[in-house]
Design a protein around this nucleic acid. Sequence first.
DNA 1: TTGAAAGCGCTAACAT
DNA 2: ATGTTAGCGCTTTCAA
Lengths: 335, 335
Amino acid sequence: MVTLADVARHAGVSASTVSYVLSGKRSISASTRERVNRSIEELGYRPHAGARALASSRSDIIALMVPLRTDIYVPVMLQIAMAVTTTARAHGYDVLLLTGEEGPDAVRRVEGSAVADAMIVMDVELDDERLPLLREAQRPAVLIGLPSDTTGVSCVDLDFEAAGALCVEHLAGLGHRQIAFVGEAPGVYERRTGFAERTLAGLRAACDAHGLRLLHRPCGIGWSAVDATLGRILEERPGTTAFVVQNEAATDPLLALLRQRRLAVPEDVSVVAVCPDQVAERASVPLTSVAVPAQEMGRRAVEQVVAVLDGREAAGTVLLPPELTVRASSGPAPR
Amino acid sequence: MVTLADVARHAGVSASTVSYVLSGKRSISASTRERVNRSIEELGYRPHAGARALASSRSDIIALMVPLRTDIYVPVMLQIAMAVTTTARAHGYDVLLLTGEEGPDAVRRVEGSAVADAMIVMDVELDDERLPLLREAQRPAVLIGLPSDTTGVSCVDLDFEAAGALCVEHLAGLGHRQIAFVGEAPGVYERRTGFAERTLAGLRAACDAHGLRLLHRPCGIGWSAVDATLGRILEERPGTTAFVVQNEAATDPLLALLRQRRLAVPEDVSVVAVCPDQVAERASVPLTSVAVPAQEMGRRAVEQVVAVLDGREAAGTVLLPPELTVRASSGPAPR
DNA sequence: TTGAAAGCGCTAACAT
DNA sequence: ATGTTAGCGCTTTCAA
């Protein structure tokens, strides 16, 4: 293995000079820098991550906690994870993957063993059990999601309440009076995952404000679950003319089942989804949707932790404003 | 920060004793062990990962290289990644997430800086450019996938050739004579991703052996792409009575589009998929399928690298035998 | 069964 | 602008 000492010898300088060439933390004459860099190149030197971590108490690693569950938002999760990883790399950090399964223990582990300099936590519940630990942690943490109490932590998330409201306003503007909300799987609400409840809250408030009726039905995964949910909705509220869907696994089945029931989209019923643009574009009827900006969320989360690690100010909580894109699935309410 | 020295002092033993209690590498009297463990507990001691890595030249981290692309098998990727992470944790390893984007550079980085003890590489191309580096690497590597030349590397994968053959045999047994293969996105073939080509090879060989006709059409992502592909197939080969699908994003649209064209599944046409069981079960018509054992693949990959890291023998290449489950989407060929 | 002590490869004062 | 040197916290020989 090639060490920094090897490089120093080869370049005829001291170890610290090599170190400083690498870190840029003090000025080095052009000639020395060049010589050192050539030696590094020639010897194929790479700093030893562990040694560096020990000496500098910086691991250049960001831990990312991803939910293990599969009842939820798979592509969104992957998109976020990927955005986190690429953004982190761009800032010189690697990403350590932790599963939500480990829960608070993972936080302790990361904190105690100094494997990572910071944490990004996904799939946040309103009253998340990892929260107290993160608050008193020495290292910066950013949640992707929004707990009920955000004191002492930074969060990045879509403003799901505003997203819900936006859906209602769009539909109200088109003359719809009865809306059904096809939500996430029941488990997601039972766990009190923030985004699901917040969308619902936004929908409710806006429906009240506009005098619309709202029916909320969680919806499990799989064709038959969607079919059952749709059946119940149409039976309970035959006057429903619009659906808001926040459930990645349900959008396509829903469109197909509506077609099967001879309900044309958007002529008979309108559908508005809360999902990534990619999903909306690829649906059988391109969906009018409020985008879940997964990439943006991942990117912002990394930029926040990096800012703190670089000694700049933490941005606190950032709620991204929702954007609704009109596509083919929404139209005037039938009369 | 609590260090090993703190623990030693607190327990009234030497540093090495604490270290040995932790590693179990030499026998310790029950009483000392107990005392040390109590001190560890009381002080809330966690070994510093960097220090440990430096002293032992073991980071207890496994690097996992995941493709960044989204034109491919998203749930499968996530399932594998999760299985890798949980299995790794069970063996005391953490997982470092690398994106395929970095390509060979990532291999060099991991290798040179000793961030990870081993690598698991996904989305392997037949003639992968990371392969030469992996072969001469000091650290064990396992590919999830199968390149054309497997010398000097370990691989774990489903036997996709056998999977293709299995599909054909099932359909041939049901009396089908003309099969269409709805494959992955064109890009997947252009990159020469092994599994896609191998399934095709298996299908071809088996069709030849059984005297069936096969039509292969790659299929892009999105409803319209599937529609176009289906249109072309039915036009070119109106006698098609069975579809084999290996494209996660295309299965559900395909079923819906067949329905739309008044082709009943399985009465008019049969559909056999190559996908995770979860996907097959949840489709609008539960799909007869050859399972892609994502979890199993992730698990096996980790177990292989861990075996090598523990000084046991490497298992070389493991091709998992395919299993076909008959569900509702396949039936006798119409006459 | 336990301790002492020499590093592991790097960073960052402290010198010059 | 560069060199010297004392650790960072742990593992592991070597001794007892």
